[in-house]
């Protein structure tokens, strides 16, 4: 068990190092001169030199990478080309919005997926199962941003129930925060929920067919006890992994949804950095995303060994 944890953690660290090299190379090797790109066409030599020096870009690449990664470890991701603010501060400012959205989305997704997937599996080929299959199939095929636009059209426009966009910090106005969360969270939650519904259904179906379920029934257990302890308990174990991966995706992959809802999260920050050619911010954000993604995957894997007695042996 500890051997596995150690190996798995080490593997993640290696991959993360590779990621950092890739992020660094992406900006420095392919393009050559981020400063020139950042400044655009109109700049004078003095500004250029100043920015270059400030960013340490006059050093050899290997040195630059070493400096960048060693300060990154201490939480210093450099300074924004555009605003001059530390990248770490910019990221931390955006974190609450992203966390709120990801958390609420996974909640919505699970609230849809667990009941719908379970009931579909318990009554295969029923009307509800058919409906669930169609809905989840369509759900994974809908572009999230279009779903967002449609929800805005209906619930913000026609019905006027929720704000069309914008984020209200929890500390300012909890009710407003919740209202501002509804549409974006439902948007991403529906899509993630579709993925999870399909998974829940197949997982529960598989668990239902297991022979130990027959043993449990032969023991004289009631249907509820059989379902909870001998079907769901087994079926939901792998769901932990998939939910973790979905959460990782939600934390890092909802760039476009953030744009639709003018949501001041990390995705928006990254996209703005791209548009402004603010490479330190882009580098920092991408590195952070990859870090979170790897970390969550690692946590899920380690958690799974705790949850499934067969592995933790």
């Amino acid at each position: 068990m500890t051997g596995f944890a150690l190996r798995r953690t080490l593997q993640s660290v290696v991959v993360l190092l590779g990621v950092s090299v890739a992020v660094f190379a992406l900006v420095h090797l392919v393009d050559g001169d981020p400063v020139r790109l950042a400044l655009g066409t109109r700049f004078d030599q003095a500004t250029y030199d100043a920015l270059r020096e400030r960013s340490g870009l006059d050093q050899p690449l290997a040195v630059q990478y070493a400096q960048w990664i060693s300060s990154a470890v201490t939480g210093d991701l450099g300074v924004s080309f555009r605003s001059g603010d530390p990248v770490t501060v910019l990221i931390l400012e955006r974190l609450p919005a992203t966390l709120s959205l990801a958390g609420a989305s996974i909640l919505v997704a699970l609230l849809i997926a667990l009941p719908l997937g379970t009931v579909s599996a318990l009554r295969p080929r029923s009307l509800l199962d058919g409906l669930g299959t169609v809905v989840s199939q369509v759900g994974i095929s809908v572009p999230e941003f279009w779903m967002g636009i449609m929800l805005i059209l209906l619930f913000a426009g026609t019905l006027g129930w929720f704000p069309a966009s914008g984020y209200v910090p929890l500390s300012e106005d909890p009710a407003g925060w919740a209202r501002s969360l509804v549409l974006p969270a439902v948007t991403t939650g529906l899509v993630s929920g579709s993925v999870l519904t399909r998974f829940t259904r197949s997982s529960v179906l598989e668990a239902l067919g297991a022979e130990h379920v027959r043993t449990a029934r032969a023991k004289g257990l009631g249907p509820r006890a059989v379902l909870n302890w001998h079907v769901l308990r087994n079926a939901l174990l792998p769901l932990v992994t998939v939910t973790g991966v979905q959460l990782a995706y939600l934390l890092s992959g909802v760039v476009v949804v953030e744009i639709v809802f003018a949501w001041p999260g990390l995705g928006q920050l990254a996209l703005q950095a791209v548009q402004a050619r603010d490479y330190p911010v882009l580098q920092g954000a991408v590195l952070l995303f990859a870090f979170v993604f790897l970390l969550l995957n690692l946590v899920v894997d380690l958690l799974y060994t705790k949850l499934d007695p067969r592995i933790s042996a």
Binding site: A22, S252, G253, A270, V274, A290, L294
Partner: peptide
Amino acid sequence: MRLMDVLFAFPAMLLAIAVIAVL
């Protein structure tokens, strides 16, 4: 495969955006 792991560690949309940021 480690190389693929590195590519895979980027959230898909973000990797695409980062690549386009450069290209």
